[in-house]
Simulated assay, not measured.
Amino acid sequence: MNLIDMSFKPARFEVECKYSLLFESALGIAAATYPRLHDHLETPKNYWDNLQQSLSEKLQQELLHCQKNNTWKILLQLLHERDFQSLDEFLQYIKELPDEQLRYIAFPYLDLSQQQNREIAAKGDERAVREMIAACQGHAFFPGLIEFVFKENPATLTEHLITIMEKWHTEVADKDEGTIEILKRDAQAKLQVIGKLSSSQLVQRATGVEYEAEPNIAKVLLIPHYIYRPWTIEANLVDTKVFYYPVSDESLSDGTHKNIPPAALVNFYKALGDEKRLRILKLLYEKERTLKELTELLELGKTTIHHHLVLLRSAHIVKVNNNGTYSLSQFPLNMREQLLKEYLQW
């Protein structure tokens, strides 16, 4: 087939980074209401079990309601409406929202093709709601969330959002001393390298995700979190891609011992410090390969190869593709060189 490509492909996107204890609270509520994930968070499972027992009865009730309807997502979407400076400002904003605007914000953004339906659905149009639900069939919880927002009384939803956020902030977030400083350190570290790295490199350094410019996305917003480590959460807003990313290991300390190298740098060179892993790297440099292919080419056991691949993946050198093959990540070599230069300049 002969093709003349005259389409526009965006070459770059803007990157912003901001932090807030309000985002941390909303993500904490999300984590608390996703018990299946508790075994896969850095915060041990017994923390969540003990936390549950320590909460007031009212907050436990609100968390159950949130778990059923995924209202934590609504909190996050509301937080993106403004740069709120305090919990009181955020709660007052929710309280004063007209019913139609509350519904519009609460409906998840799907894509530009569904924006008109989102606006009409906020006015109470059931046909638009059905079209939105049909458009996101297969998503883990969006269809149910859309149905919930449409049917729920706005006054009842407002009361729930205010209560759960206020009580979580009082009973949990305010007791985690030092969290805001961790978030601040990490955000500042990312802001310092804006301009030194490309936008894609900066996103990968923060999130571990390879992200390239895509149509209709003008900005990527990076928001650090501690409570959901080690997971990165990806979301879409109008014109914006959001990554709620885990703070780096080095951001957990106050920087007093500046001779300690960044964990990402240590993990990278540890991953390369093995003959078998370097051989895997060479094979993947040639082309993407399956686990079976690597096993046969290296004449090693599948368990051994898988172990080395796990280490290479944890250092963000290797990635798994949608078709199950392994390939090299796009940026790690140049990124780690930059990270090493930054460390040696201390």
Rank of each mutant, 00 (worst) to 15 (best):
A264Y: 14
L265A: 03
L265P: 14
L265Y: 08
L265C: 11
L265E: 13
L265I: 08
V266Y: 07
N267C: 08
N267A: 15
N267P: 08
N267D: 15
N267I: 11
F268N: 10
F268T: 05
F268D: 08
F268G: 07
F268W: 12
Y269W: 12
Y269Q: 11
K270F: 13
A271M: 06
A271L: 05
A271S: 09
A271P: 05
L272V: 08
L272N: 04
L272K: 12
L272Q: 09
G273C: 02
G273L: 05
G273F: 12
G273A: 04
G273E: 05
G273Y: 11
G273K: 04
D274V: 10
D274G: 15
D274Q: 04
D274C: 08
D274M: 07
E275R: 02
E275M: 03
E275H: 03
K276M: 09
K276G: 04
K276N: 08
K276C: 11
R277D: 11
L278K: 15
L278D: 09
L278S: 10
L278N: 14
R279V: 03
R279C: 06
R279D: 15
R279N: 15
R279M: 10
R279F: 10
I280Q: 10
I280K: 02
L281C: 10
L281F: 14
L281Y: 15
L281W: 13
L281G: 05
K282D: 14
K282M: 12
K282A: 12
K282V: 07
L283W: 09
L283F: 11
L283R: 12
L284W: 08
L284P: 08
L284M: 07
L284R: 08
L284V: 11
Y285E: 15
Y285A: 10
Y285N: 13
Y285D: 12
Y285S: 11
E286T: 05
E288H: 13
E288D: 13
E288K: 15
R289Y: 02
T290L: 03
T290R: 01
T290Q: 00
T290D: 02
T290G: 11
L291A: 01
K292R: 07
K292Q: 14
E293S: 09
E293N: 06
E293V: 04
E293F: 02
E293M: 01
E293K: 10
L294I: 05
L294R: 02
T295M: 06
T295F: 05
T295S: 02
T295Q: 14
T295C: 00
E296D: 07
E296T: 07
E296F: 10
E296G: 04
E296Q: 15
E296W: 03
L297P: 01
L297T: 05
L297I: 07
L297K: 12
L298S: 01
L298G: 03
L298M: 04
L298N: 01
L298D: 03
E299G: 00
E299C: 01
L300V: 06
L300W: 10
L300D: 04
G301T: 06
G301K: 06
G301D: 12
G301S: 10
K302A: 05
K302H: 00
K302R: 11
K302L: 02
K302Y: 03
T303V: 00
T303F: 00
T303I: 00
T303W: 00
T303N: 01
T304I: 06
T304S: 10
